[in-house]
Design a protein around this nucleic acid. Structure first.
Length: 941
RNA sequence: GGCCCGGUGGUGAAAUUGGUAUACACGCAAGACUUAAAAUCUUGUUGCAGCAAUGCAGUGUGGGUUCGAGUCCCACCCGGGCCACCA
């Protein structure tokens, strides 16, 4: 047999594969009947130019699960596409003078070629490329639906602005005060733009407490139940979907949504009221939001944000200049300075006072930039006696401090240091509420009181902001809005969609959106009145595209079977295929993409086009592959490992397997050049083991195989396998020992369970263990052993004890991990020698000719990937003999080989008979015996 | 400051969820084959003591629960991630 040559094997195997999914009818190929669906989704990628190791990790490893599911008889739909709009294309264009469209499509072409070397089952027949009009038409459609429902609105607000990219950024796109794309410091700028009212869905997006508790983290070790029901039964009877998303994600999203229940309290401003005596007084009050109304008697000052609308009026003549200077200064500060600089509090007094409604005390109003204009009401009450931050501020500016929460009911001690600040205890100095316990019942009592008096109203506040979606850039979906002098804001009628993105545009950033320079495109007749009007010149945030792309994969049954479309997706297909069964992606999308897409799905449900609440049953996060130096792979670090190079050296199978093997899938781990050699070595050994198989291909010596070991079990005890390519011949039967069966069955069980539990690393090591066992027994049998038991040389004959049956099962288990090599070995096992690579390259022409002409059903027979996943026999999963550990007082003193079903009395007898154990026992014998059947016996003295 | 993960050999990591700690792999060492090297195969590899059998210690630290703890509880130390003047 010739050497294992991955490149040769892989090229050949890949040519054989043709996996097509008929979306209209999930079928069980091997059974030829209506089957179960499995919608397998991986976050589509940005077409950045070349596939890097991260892409392999994200796409090639999950393919193991997809392939397992397929072998299990599911119709697996694994679509792929490109998140093709976005800034890098535009930046590359500006730098190199290539049009973003051309740049993007040439990258897509290149990446698809690279994708094909992965040996994954991704389906390109349903490909989604977001920059194609066919896709973004529906972006515009969804936008208009949201506009119609009042969820898309135009607003002017202080926003995150990236000076380099010349565009606004959503909160989620600001990382540490810097732009997520280019790292430039983000500044605050007032810009009018489009928002989506995601806040209206805040409550619905919140994960319920229960689902967090029951949710599993990605690394969870328990077997995740991926045994997905058939196409209809995807929801529980109550109509809510059981979702298995990482706990960390649910918690982060809930934190980000940041629900807090509190109260808005009104503080009157007497001096303003005096000045405008005749008017209604609602204007002359400041509202604050607080979660801690029980501390209201301790309010000694108030702080408003520099952007608060009443700042101008509150600043008295005496303080006007101070206040104006302060506001100017804080506006100049970038987001970074405002948040990451030392938390040294700054602020100025406005000269005005407000009145605390509960005790009529006048407290001073300050302006300080630690108060966020966009959260709550942009004003807070200062309670330095029971809030650390307020205490710090009061200390710095010498404001009075009153104790309202004491460590006892008559605690009147002064609050002198931060240690004296209490958040729980008993109310003191709080009028009729003294002596109430804090938080409860004090909080509820005071809230009721404030509401009853009309001074406050209960309020649920969310940290979540509305989502800013306009980008002042070119390479994105044009916003389908027209501005008419007569009619105002006019949505583009549905029949006029898509609003095409013009090709010829000056997209160099000049402080205004590039589309504004396409004069001809901008000028348009108003669809209402026919007058001259102008198009919106902004484009949609690309997160808009990715919020629903997974629905777009379900637009048609196949490329040659397109339907008339009146929705972004085909409704009947959505009903069959949704929800997604497993969704792989990066943890970095916890607060952006996955939250947005949940929002979209809930919206689409509300307008009646979708029936699901959550779009993915299970979400799995992947980790990050670092360079061998432990740093992020980057050109500047010089530590980039190019997957193409590794594939050339070791083959795609080895790269896939190493990525699966190096650790838990959500691990952040470096690429170890030695590590891939380890799995390559494993594959070589699998390849070589072919020669040791007793079967029609290699030299087979039934006499030696049979006589070498007596099988105590009859024919029927052999593991039954469904539809193996060729049935075990008489010669290969009966040669499996109990030990052989134990290894085979436990490996089948463990590998299947581990893949479903996203524990690819231990699945691989289990395969390795079985291989070690198999090659160990082959090795032993090929050695001539002399009378003293020492090895004196190799047998001249290739005398083996590896059955074709075992090898077949082995290959099928390995197939999802290493699809190419197993395909070739499978073929070698089941075809005449002349068809096989091992017999030189003659085969190729003839084989390919047959491939292209053979109908699809023929694939089933000759591809290992159409084979059923092996089943295991529970009887052989446990070993017949086990090692019984004998402990004395919990310390291991001996271990004995015993029958698995040994009784306690029997075990006790054996344990007491052990010399090693006796040393640790006194004459009286054990006081107590703990017996764990099949595992251990502990003698307590 | 808040929330969430982790801490096990020289390294990446396993550990049937309370039952032999270090599977599997890398690395290293020795041996076989070879004129030699590479490749391959075999053996060893937690630490300490010992020729060995074996003994003792051992999963960040200190306590606790238990016949028995890497696993559960309490306190602390260290590392990582996300959010963050959130009222």
């Amino acid at each position: 047999m010739i050497k294992y040559q991955p490149s040769k094997v892989e090229e050949k195997s890949r040519k054989k594969w043709k996996y097509k999914v008929d979306l209209s009818r999930p079928s069980d190929e091997s059974q030829g009947k209506l089957g179960k669906k499995f919608y397998f989704l991986v976050e589509f990628t940005y077409p950045s130019g070349d596939l890097h190791m991260g892409h392999w990790f994200a796409f090639a490893v999950p393919d193991i699960l997809a392939r397992l599911k397929r072998m299990q008889g599911y119709t697996v739909f694994a679509p792929n596409g490109f998140d093709a709009f976005g800034l890098p294309a535009e930046n590359a264009a500006i730098r190199r003078g290539i049009h973003p469209k051309d740049w993007t499509f040439s990258n897509i072409k290149r990446m698809k070629e690279q994708f094909s070397t992965m040996g994954a089952i991704y389906d390109w027949e349903h490909e989604v490329i977001t920059c194609e009009p066919d896709f973004y038409k529906w972006n515009q459609w969804i936008f208009l639906k949201m506009y119609e429902k009042g969820l898309a609105y135009r607003g002017k607000i202080l926003s995150n602005w990236c000076p380099k990219d010349q565009t606004v950024l959503a909160n989620e796109n600001v990382e540490n005060g810097k732009c997520w794309r280019c790292g430039t410091e983000v500044v605050q700028k007032e810009v009018e733009q489009w928002f989506l009212k995601i806040t209206e869905y805040a409550e619905k997006l919140l994960w319920k407490e229960q689902s967090i508790v029951s949710g599993q983290s990605t690394t969870s070790t328990t077997g995740l139940n991926l045994k997905v029901s058939d196409t209809r039964d995807t929801r529980t009877t109550r109509g809510t979907l059981e979702v298995d998303w990482p706990k960390s994600l649910k918690e982060s999203q809930n934190n980000w949504i940041g629900k807090s229940e509190g109260i808005i309290i009104k503080f009157q401003i007497p001096q303003l009221r005096q000045g405008f005596a005749g008017r209604a007084n609602t204007k002359f009050q400041i509202e604050v939001f607080t979660k801690f109304p029980e501390t209201i008697f301790g309010v000694t000052y108030m702080v408003i944000a520099p952007e608060h609308p009443l700042v101008g009026q509150l600043a008295t003549a005496e303080h006007k200049k101070d206040v104006e200077d302060y506001i100017k200064l804080s506006k100049k500060k970038s987001e970074l300075e405002r948040t990451s600089l030392e938390k040294q509090k700054t602020g100025v007094f406005t000269g005005s006072h407000v009145v605390n409604p509960v005790n009529d005390e006048k407290v001073p109003v300050w302006v300080a930039d630690y108060v966020i204009a966009t959260y709550g009401t942009g004003a807070v009450m200062g309670v330095p006696g029971s809030d650390l931050r307020d205490f710090e501020f009061a200390k710095k500016f010498d404001l009075p401090i009153v104790r309202v929460i004491g460590s006892s009911k008559n605690d009147q001690s002064e609050v002198l240091s931060d240690k004296d600040v209490l958040e729980e205890g008993w109310l003191v100095n709080s009028g009729q509420f003294n002596s109430l316990a804090v938080p409860e019942p004090a909080k509820e009592k005071i809230m009721d009181y404030l509401v009853e008096k009309g001074w406050g109203k209960r309020k649920v506040n969310y940290h979540l902001h509305d989502w800013s979606i306009s980008r002042q850039r070119y390479w994105g979906t044009p916003i389908p809005i027209i501005y008419c002098d007569r009619c105002g804001v006019v949505p583009v009628p549905e029949k006029d969609l898509p609003v095409l993105l013009p090709y010829d545009v000056d997209f160099a950033p000049k402080g205004k959106p590039p589309l504004a320079t396409a004069e001809e495109w901008v000028r348009v007749k108003c669809p209402n009145c026919g007058e001259e009007a102008r198009r919106d010149v902004e484009t949609l945030d690309t997160f808009f595209d990715s919020s629903w792309y997974f629905l777009r994969y379900l637009r048609h049954i196949g490329t040659n079977n397109k339907k008339d479309e009146n929705l972004p997706f085909a409704r009947d297909l959505a009903e069959i295929w949704l929800p997604v069964d497993v969704y792989f992606g990066g943890a970095e999308h916890t607060l952006g993409h996955t939250l947005y897409s949940r929002f979209f799905v809930k919206f689409l449900k509300d307008i009646g086009v979708l029936k699901i609440d959550e779009y993915a049953k299970k979400r799995v996060h992947h980790g990050v592959i670092l360079g061998s130096d432990g740093q992020r792979m980057s050109k500047s670090h010089g530590n980039v490992v190019n997957p193409d190079d590794e594939v050339a050296k070791y083959g795609a199978d080895a790269v896939r397997m190493y990525l699966a093997f190096l650790g838990p899938y959500d691990l952040v781990a470096p690429w170890d050049p030695g590590g891939i050699r380890g799995v390559y070595h494993f594959l070589e050994r699998v390849w070589k083991l072919f020669d040791a198989v007793a079967g029609p291909v290699s030299s087979f010596h039934p006499a030696s195989a049979r006589s070498s070991r007596k099988s105590r079990v009859g024919q029927k005890d052999n593991v039954e396998l469904r539809a193996v390519g060729s049935p075990p011949t008489a010669a290969t039967r009966n040669v499996l020992t109990d030990e052989d069966k134990f290894w085979m069955n436990k490996t089948i069980k463990k590998v299947g369970e581990d893949i479903e539990g996203i524990k690819f690393n231990t699945a691989v090591s289990t395969m390795m263990e079985w291989l070690n066992y198999l090659s160990g027994k082959v090795h032993r049998s090929s050695l001539i052993v002399n009378r003293e038991g020492s090895k004196v040389g190799k047998s001249p004959m290739n005398d083996t004890r590896l059955t074709i049956h075992e090898y077949e099962v082995f290959l099928r288990l390995l197939a999802p991990f290493a699809p190419h090599i197993t395909e070739e070995l499978w073929e070698m096992l089941h075809s005449s020698p002349s068809d096989v690579i091992a017999s030189e390259a003659k085969q190729s022409k003839k084989k390919i000719a047959t491939d292209s002409s053979s109908p699809r059903n023929d694939n089933v027979k000759w591809s290992i990937h159409s084979q059923p996943w092996p089943e295991y026999d529970e009887r052989f999963v446990k070993a017949q003999t086990v090692t019984l550990v004998v402990q004395v007082n919990g310390k291991v003193r001996d271990s004995l080989p015993v029958e698995a079903g040994i009784s306690q009395t029997e075990a006790e007898k054996l344990a007491l008979a052990s010399v090693k154990v006796q040393k640790f026992l006194n004459t009286k014998g054990p006081r107590k015996v703990v017996f764990v059947p099949g595992r251990l016996i502990n003698l307590v003295v």
